[in-house]
Design a protein around this nucleic acid. Sequence first.
DNA 1: CTTCACGCCCAAAGCGGTTTGGATTTTCCG
DNA 2: CGGAAAATCCAAACCGCTTTGGGCGTGAAG
Lengths: 340, 340
Amino acid sequence: MNLKDLSHHLGLSPTTVSRALNGYPEVSERTRARVHEAAERLGYAPSARAMGLATGRAMAIGHILPLSSEHEQVNPVFSDFIAGAGEVYSGAGYDLSLSVVRDEDETATYERIARRGTVDGVVLHGPRVDDPRIALLQRLGLPFVVHGRSSAVARDYDWIDVNNRRAFQRATDLLLDLGHRRIALLNGLSHMDFAARRLAGYQAALAARGLELPEDYVTSGEMTETYGHAEALRLLDRPDPPTAFLVASIIPALGLRRALEDRGLKMGRDISVVIHDDELSYFRNAGEVPAFSATRSSVRAAGRLCAEALLAAIAGERPKVQTLLEAELVLGLSTGPAPQ
Amino acid sequence: MNLKDLSHHLGLSPTTVSRALNGYPEVSERTRARVHEAAERLGYAPSARAMGLATGRAMAIGHILPLSSEHEQVNPVFSDFIAGAGEVYSGAGYDLSLSVVRDEDETATYERIARRGTVDGVVLHGPRVDDPRIALLQRLGLPFVVHGRSSAVARDYDWIDVNNRRAFQRATDLLLDLGHRRIALLNGLSHMDFAARRLAGYQAALAARGLELPEDYVTSGEMTETYGHAEALRLLDRPDPPTAFLVASIIPALGLRRALEDRGLKMGRDISVVIHDDELSYFRNAGEVPAFSATRSSVRAAGRLCAEALLAAIAGERPKVQTLLEAELVLGLSTGPAPQ
DNA sequence: CTTCACGCCCAAAGCGGTTTGGATTTTCCG
DNA sequence: CGGAAAATCCAAACCGCTTTGGGCGTGAAG
């Protein structure tokens, strides 16, 4: 059932049927109702391809999921982000086109996507400190919104980010106020922008109190449970182990918890922990008193915001979205005064 | 840069250029080389929409991600599955179209997708014991592969599944062999097919030894960390607590571990645990001796297999893929003889 | 009674590819 | 060397929709 069939069926021209369905004013309400009824009854849905070809819009948003060959993983943060963005897309009649791509093919993929016209815009995930993709996308003229920022890129672009620096500065201050002086940071991969900003916040808080800590109190890596476990063990087994940890995600924090258990230490009493909590749907850190003290910011909400911003940009409104979300600092069971 | 421009540029007809690029034999190798070179140089890529319109193929596969309104979560298993499938798609030049959809809109989405022709086929996620979507897709004539099965559906369809029943029967046997008699099962949502099959395996193993256990030794729910924690606490606090747990995923098992810690119990000594390990990239249960004893089957590999099967089906090969993957049973640190 | 403005609808020209059915050369062979 | 076969290439139709540029009544204004 295509437009021609339908219009023939109705004794109308394709033009009129198309206009009726798309809400153009040149068609009487009576006809419009008839057309809608028939379309519904006959199960007519316009071909997305033909529509796209005629209008020049793909009605789809691209998300590119790079898989680095070293650490072949898909960040769990990604699924919740997608869930948030996806809701917005389906509400607006947009599709979400996902490309899983090897790191090294990533720029090629952007170029191909832009030229093939499969999407009207893209969301940029996991920006590095100095991310070449921003310039690339601007060159390609493909609308985009960055989830995060790229500190070393001077250009102007739309982004939605959490105030990572402030969050980790506050978290560090909290631990310092509790009397902790040996505070370790289990950070994300160091070339990621969010990790760099968190490190900066941590360092700023320490510097403000004139503290200096061993270099390897800061670790960076892919945020797996195993990573948290291994690095925590390493640090706990030092001659001068930390009394507190900042952890970049709840997942390595679970590994940290395992490490504490291995060493017979109790979280919140022997060792304090503050995590960054993305509110992953499978790892709720909630309840009257959450298990972990945390800087909290919903990645799903960020997904929604990115999607909305991008759709607005595509619709031609150019409001330059640069939104800094503040994470809330919530106290849970994992923090307590430093043991002396 | 479209085909007309390119052909004009080359002094050839669009026909010839199209054929040259698509590998048709009616064009000389010399011309083909010239065309390819020019296309490369001028950065020509055919419009996906126009191509789709002309060929009738969308070169895209749909994945529908239903979000139930009660438990608004995105299964982490999903991201790894997608990663596996996505690799295959990009290798074959296919896009992956993801629809995030409210539960109640799911059938409507399938119908719309089928009629709009945005995809050439879909992967069915999370089949229920009796899943109406299978009949729906067959009625729509949209090629599909199910990740899992739907036990109560008598029809013939393509699927890739893990032998969940056998896996959980073996895991239960392992625990029984170790002397455990009070074995709890922290299962997934009971209407999910995989959960029903795991339950059946568990029950079969118990029945084979003439064991009967309290009804609430089996729990079902969304497989979050919190779920594992809460149910484990409830069971451990019974007058006759289990000495062993079967857990449907590593994520609730982390909650279980937290519960053990809360109660001062040691996993592998006081309480034995066997999980099902999907090999989630952020929760590796590996190493010389893995932390958890597990029935192991890579969901990422399953994603690859589903994608390959679907692409084959779309290509017209109709090999009726019904693949049962056997999970391997690996011994880790979480199991030991039952304390007496 | 014109004339003009609407209101309603339509024919036809794209959008950017693929594919059918020739047309024109080349090549091959007796 | 002539004719058939093979090799190349092309014009035009088509995929299913949108959109431009009218056409045709009808009622109001002049």
